[in-house]
Design a protein around this nucleic acid. Structure first.
Lengths: 340, 340
DNA sequence: TTGTAGGCGTTATCAT
DNA sequence: ATGATAACGCCTACAA
């Protein structure tokens, strides 16, 4: 193994000079810089990560905590994980993968051992038990998702309220007056995460503003429950022409059921989905959908931990950032002007 | 931060004793062991990862290199990544996520800096350019996939030849005599990976053994190309009653097209797919399919790097293991007795 | 069974 | 602009 000392000897300078050439933390004459860089290449020197971490008290690693549950749509998770990794590299950081089966203990472990300088949490719950652990240790963290209490951490998430509003606007613009919002199972609206509620609120407010009549029905996302939900909607409000779906599992069934009940999409009924683009593209008809910028989620989260790590390293109190990313509505084939 | 020295002082022993209590590398009297463990808990001691890596010349980290391409079915990739992480933890290791946009350089970087003790490569190509890099540095590696030249590395993969044979057997058992094998686009059979060829060979050998008449047709996996492929198959061999599909994209179209041409599955035609279970379950009818044990892939790969790292650490030449995992055929609704 | 001491490769504080 | 040198926290051969 080639060490700093080897390079120093080869270049005829001291070890500290080599270190400074490499870190750029103090000015070096052009000539010695060249000599050192030369030696580095010739000897094939690569700094030792452990030694660096020990001396600099910084590992240049962030931990990414991923859920094991197939609870979320997996390709999206992967996309975020990759965007995090790529973004981290641009800051000279590597990413350590932590699965959530370790629970709050996993987060504690990597932070307290100095293995990671900071942590990024995916799949954050409203009252996430990992957050108190982070606060207690003063661990720098960015959350992808929005918990109840965000003190001591930075957060980034989609702006679900805006997403809901986009749906209402789009259908209103097309002349629809009676809308049904097919949501997740009722459990979701309390447990897990706040995005369901935030979406609904955004939709509701805008719908009222635009004078829409609407109803919200939770739905478990199976074929059967979707059938039940749709039947009830059509019984309660036979003139419903617009559907907003926020439930990956209910999309397919809903399209089939509408077709089965003689309603053609988009001529007789319009459907706008809140889901990833990849999903929206794979139905027939392809779905008009509201989607957030997935990769941004990862990029911003990295930015946030980096800011915190840097601040903390300088003895400054890191600021708790909160970023909500604006979603986009893409018109595809499942929405059209209201009938008549 | 609590250090070894702090614990030693608190327990009234020397630092080395604490170290040995923790590592178990030499016998300790029950009483001091208890005192030390006590102090560890009371003070909340956690060993510093950097210092440990530096002194022990072992980071207790393995790098997992994942492809960025949506080339592979993403949920499977994720499943492997997670099983790798879980398995690694059981060996006291953590997993560093490396994306393939760094190319061979990424692998070099983590190994040469001592950041990782070993490497696991996913999505291995036949003539993978990362492998020479690994060999050159003497990096311990396990590959998920089977390259041309496996010297200096360990490998684990599905036994695709066995998978192909399972398909042939199943259809032969059901009395089918004319089979069509719908494969990937012709490019795949040369480029990328060998599994397509291995599957085909396994199928072919067994099919001949069982006296089946069969043909193999590459297929791009779009609706159009599947339509073309099927039309050609039925023109060439109108009596074809069995289909083997190894092409995720062609499955949906194939089912639709068979239906469209008046062939009911499984009464008129049987379809067996080579694909992940999750996919097989989501079609109507649910597909009889051959699937390998995904999580095992990760677990075995971890086992293999661990073996290599341990051996190398003891100055022993690590042995190049090769494990092929036996796939399983699950009968679902898409296969039945041959007609007549 | 336990302690001592040197070293692992970098960083960063003092000097010069 | 450059050099010595003392940490950084842990491991482990060598002693006792």
């Amino acid at each position: 193994m080639v060490t700093l000392a080897d390079v120093a000897k080869h270049a005829g300078v001291s070890a500290s000079t080599v270190s400074y050439v490499l870190s750029g933390k103090r000015s070096i004459s052009a000539s010695t810089r060249r000599r050192v860089e030369q030696s580095v290449v010739e000897l094939g020197y690569h700094p030792n990560a452990g030694a660096r971490a020990l001396a600099a008290r910084r590992s240049h690693i962030v931990a990414l905590v991923v859920p094991l549950t197939a609870d979320v749509y997996v390709p999206i998770m992967m996309e975020i994980a990759i965007s995090v990794t790529v973004a981290a590299r641009q800051h000279g950081y590597d990413v350590l993968l932590i699965t959530n089966d370790e629970g709050p203990e996993g987060v504690r472990r990597v932070a307290v051992s100095g293995l990671a300088d900071g942590v990024i949490l995916m799949d954050v719950e409203l009252a996430d038990e990992r957050i108190p652990a982070l606060r207690a240790q003063g661990t720098q963290a960015a959350l992808i998702g929005l918990p109840d209490d965000t003190t001591g951490v930075s957060c980034v998430d989609h702006d679900f309220a805006a997403a809901g509003a986009l749906c209402a606007d789009h259908l209103a613009d097309l002349g629809h007056r009676e809308i049904a919002f097919i949501g997740y199972g009722s459990g979701i609206y309390h447990r897990h995460v706040g995005y369901a509620e935030r979406t609904l609120r955004g939709f509701r407010d805008r719908a009222e503003q635009r004078g829409l009549r609407f109803l919200h029905r939770p739905c478990e996302g199976t074929f059967e429950s979707t059938a039940g939900t749709l039947a009830r909607v059509l019984a309660d409000r036979p003139d419903t022409t617009g559907f907003v779906v926020q439930n990956e599992g209910a999309i397919g069934p809903l399209l089939n059921l509408l077709r089965g009940s003689g309603k053609t999409v988009p001529e007789d009924a319009s459907v706008v989905a809140l889901c990833p683009e990849q999903l929206a593209e794979q139905y027939a008809p392809r779905l008009t959908a509201v989607t957030g910028p997935t990769k941004e989620l990862g990029r911003v989260a990295v930015e946030q931990v980096m800011n915190r790590i840097t601040a903390a390293g300088q003895g400054i109190q890191p600021s708790d950032e909160l970023v909500l990313l604006t979603p986009v509505l893409t018109v595809r084939e499942s929405t059209g002007p209201a009938p008549r």
